[in-house]
Every structure is written in C-alpha cells, then in structure tokens.
Design a protein around this nucleic acid. Structure first.
Lengths: 158, 158
DNA sequence: GTATGTGCAAAACGTTTGCAAGTTC
DNA sequence: GAACTTGCAAACGTTTTGCACATAC
C-alpha cells in the first residue's frame, strides 16, 4: 500500500507550492500534519490523526488538526467522505485517482475500485439530465466473502 | 409530484402493519408525523418537518420527531441520505423505487434518476470484488443548466 | 511590523437520552 | 396495570470559533 517515501517528498512540495499560491504560511504544525496525511494510505478521521500523534508523544491541538484538514481540503490535496458515520473520513488525493468505495457492512473494511465504463456512464447520465458533472461519490455497502463466507455457500451456519 | 392522496392512506396502512409486527404502539404523534412524511415527496430534514408543523400551529417535540424518524427508518419506510451537509436528509420509500441523485452545487436542487445499465454495472463490479451488494448510494454533484446557463455557452459573463 | 497561525476552553451544531408524567393495549 | 411513549431539558460527539499569545514573512 505504501508506494515509497519519495512520494511524500513530492507531495510535500505540492503542498508548499499550493500554500504559497493561496497565501498560507508554512508552519511546523502544518508540515507535520500534512506529512502524516501523505504517509497515510488508508481512509482516516481527524480523531485517528490526533490519536496517532498523541500515541507517539507528539503534540497536536485539536483545533489545529481540524484547521489543517480544512486547508488541505481547500488546496484539493485531500478528499472528504461521508460513510454514514457521525464523523468524516479523509484520504489524500495525490497518487490516488478518482475511485469509488465498497464498504463491508460487517467488518467495516473499505475497498477502492475504479471502473472506466462506470465513469463514462455517470457522465452520460449527468449530461442527459442537463447537468455538468463536478464531483460524484458512489458508495456500495456490501458483505465481503472473508467476513461471511458461509453465507455465500449452499448451507448457512445460522 | 403528488401522486394522489389515496397513496397516503395505503402507506399509513403499511405503517400500522409494520408497527404492529414490531410491537410499536400507535399514537397520535406517530400518525401525524408519518402522514407528513408520506405526503412529502421531496427530500426533507427533521428540521424541515418540525418547522413545517410549527408554522401550521401544530405541536411537535423535537425528541419525538427524531424518534419517529428512527422508527420509520427501522421499519424501512424511509431512507436516509447524506448529501454532504451537517444534517441528514430523508425520503419515504413506498412508491419511490431505488434511485440515485444529482445535486446542483449552485442552487441545491436535487434530481432523482434511475438507470438499469448503471444498476447492473454496480452489481457486476461488486461481485467481481468478492462482495454481495446490500445498499448503494451514488450522488453526483453538478451544475444545472438553469442555474448557470451562461457557463455552458461560448462566452461567460464572469 | 503586520498579517497569519496556534492553543485553549467554550460554543456550536444536529441528534440522542434520562427521567417523570402520560398513554396505549 | 405493565409496557411503552412523550416532552422537557440536559447530554452528546464532532467540529468550529473567540480570543490572547506566538510565529512567519
């Protein structure tokens, strides 16, 4: 899942570049949080971020964490997802082209997928309805084979 | 959009039936709220419901409103949607088969659509990934022609 | 030096809950 | 009358904000 740490350096440059363009100042807190975000290749919550920092003895203020996430969202370096929970999920976008999600309703596992036919169809439907597509989120809630293999064969244990 | 008031009667019977099956007692509050929900053919929030009741001089307690919505959700008479706002949207399901949504990012207008090819493709992709599909929500954020017609022609006013 | 960012604790937001009183079956 | 429902106000959990202090450029 990790794609080599050189990517993080590249993504940090991208961050600096976009921050300058939007007149955001560079600070140690922003750098540290952004680095964590770029190193994290799973979907995470702000709570996850804070917990991980504190577990490693690093200080983060909740306010700053939320503010840096908002900034990165604005700089289009992360994407926000609503997976039906009370809190929001995030994932960084550099190196992660658009994709949709399948979430296991039993174990919560999140799988990403990307299908060109599906994308083309979304676009076509949107146009047909007189709209110009900007963003789109497809989330499929499903049962994964590993979670409930017995449910898929001819005899259930239930 | 309204499909004749006889539908509401039919839907109220369905409610009563499912309430009995699940041992929910019938109360005037539940009836009134459910009736409002069945009469409302748009996507609504609990806030909408309460505001509308109060505007008509009817009393509703917030707690009861939220509790009845939870009950109807459990009885599968309404569906919950997360459209990226802080609050949740609902719509009743009887007479509204599965569909996806296009939301205008400018005016907030919500359009429903249903496409069999799309549905088949979702199912196929889910299976290919080793999952069994349960629920799926596709929301497309877009610009509608009425909102920004000038953006669609060769010269923008901006 | 001015504009911007930080951290704290408090507020804000939609939503949920504990509890005493009232209703349903 | 036992079990459930209501309504109030208070609690909730996540996210945002006011403010005084600190930092970046």
């Amino acid at each position: 899942m990790q794609k080599g740490s050189s990517n993080v350096a590249r993504e940090m440059s991208l961050l600096k570049e976009r921050m300058q363009k939007s007149q955001f100042k560079s600070t140690p807190q922003r750098d540290e949080i952004a680095e964590w975000v770029f190193k994290t290749h799973d979907h995470f919550t702000v709570e996850d971020l804070i917990t991980d920092f504190r577990g490693k003895g690093k200080k983060v203020s909740q306010a700053t964490a939320y503010r840096v996430i908002q900034m990165m969202l604005q700089l289009k370096l992360i994407e926000e997802h609503d997976f039906g929970k009370d809190y929001k999920f995030y994932e960084h976008t550099p190196g992660h082209e658009h994709h949709d999600h399948i979430i296991c309703i039993d174990c919560g596992k999140i799988i990403e997928f990307s299908d060109p036919t599906l994308e083309a169809l979304k676009e076509k439907i949107t146009l047909k309805n007189g709209f110009k597509m900007r963003e789109h989120h497809l989330t499929i809630y499903a049962e994964c084979t590993r979670c409930t293999p017995e449910k898929r064969s001819y005899k259930s244990s239930k």
